[in-house]
């Protein structure tokens, strides 16, 4: 029996409520597992805790209670340094806002994760290969401001994959794109998923994107339920 890549057990996440009010329980006893290479979509209304779930899964946050294991590491017991290492080595993030560094070129933005552990000059070959896969090999030295929204998001995709993560977490990756661009971007993501074999979790409002994932979950009232 293989060890799940991501193993959440009875995870609860609570935030302080408004002044004088009770705390807000965003996640209630979430138990969820994801294996290497699997894909999953999480859907749900706004404010249901989808991003919170993704942050916990990506070692960006720690649960109020319960356990989260990612790549065998118990995230609840990890300090900030360990969490950062986990994020560097295991996780790649794709956000709704591409969050590219405006002063760096496309190539430099993709290489950015390799600088997180101050390893010095990063090898460019894989980055160039990724950019070629996303169709931006001719735009290596352009700045983000010179790209369209879809192109910027594809750069963000390449950036998320440059360290060969085992898990890619995409939070509304097409949320800010028009429909045509969203379709293109979705296809690029799925092509990469197929080619590189990482586990993929997508938070999305797009039923079409959700339907392309192997499994679908819904988050409502803090509980994760499989979606038929």
């Amino acid at each position: 029996m293989t060890t799940p890549l991501l193993d959440m057990l009875n995870v609860t996440k609570t935030y302080p409520g408004p002044e004088g009010g009770p705390p807000v329980e965003v996640l209630r006893g979430v138990t969820w597992q994801l294996n290497d290479g699997e894909s999953a979509a999480i859907v749900g209304p706004s404010g249901s805790g989808k991003s919170t779930l993704l942050n916990l899964a990506g070692a960006l946050d720690i649960p109020t209670s319960g356990a989260v294991r990612l790549g065998g590491v118990n995230l609840a017991e990890a300090d900030d340094t360990k969490l950062a290492r986990v994020r560097r080595e295991l996780v790649g993030f794709v956000f709704q806002q591409h969050l590219l560094m405006p002063h760096l070129t496309v190539l430099e933005n993709v290489l950015l994760p390799l600088l997180a552990d101050q390893r010095g000059a990063a090898p460019e070959e894989y980055a160039r290969e990724l950019l070629d896969r996303v169709g931006l090999s001719s735009r290596l030295h352009h700045r983000p401001a010179q790209l369209s929204g879809g192109e910027q998001q594809r750069v963000a995709l390449a950036r998320a994959l440059v360290r060969r993560p085992r898990l890619v977490l995409a939070d509304e990756p097409t949320g800010s794109l028009d429909r045509a661009t969203a379709l293109v971007t979705t296809q690029v993501l799925l092509d990469l998923y197929q080619a590189l074999g990482f586990a993929l979790v997508v938070v999305t409002h797009s039923l079409e994107l959700a339907s392309r994932m192997a499994r679908r979950w819904t988050l409502a009232e803090g509980r994760l339920e499989p979606l038929a």
Binding site: G58, L60, D80, T81, A84, R85, R87, R88, E89, F93, F95, Q97, L99, M101, L112, P113, A116, D117, R159
Partner: peptide, 15 residues
């Protein structure tokens, strides 16, 4: 802040 959050997500330590 958003840039800082992104770097955090990419594996930078807070320190």
């Amino acid at each position: 802040r958003s840039e800082l959050a992104m770097l955090l997500a990419l594996g930078w330590t807070r320190r």
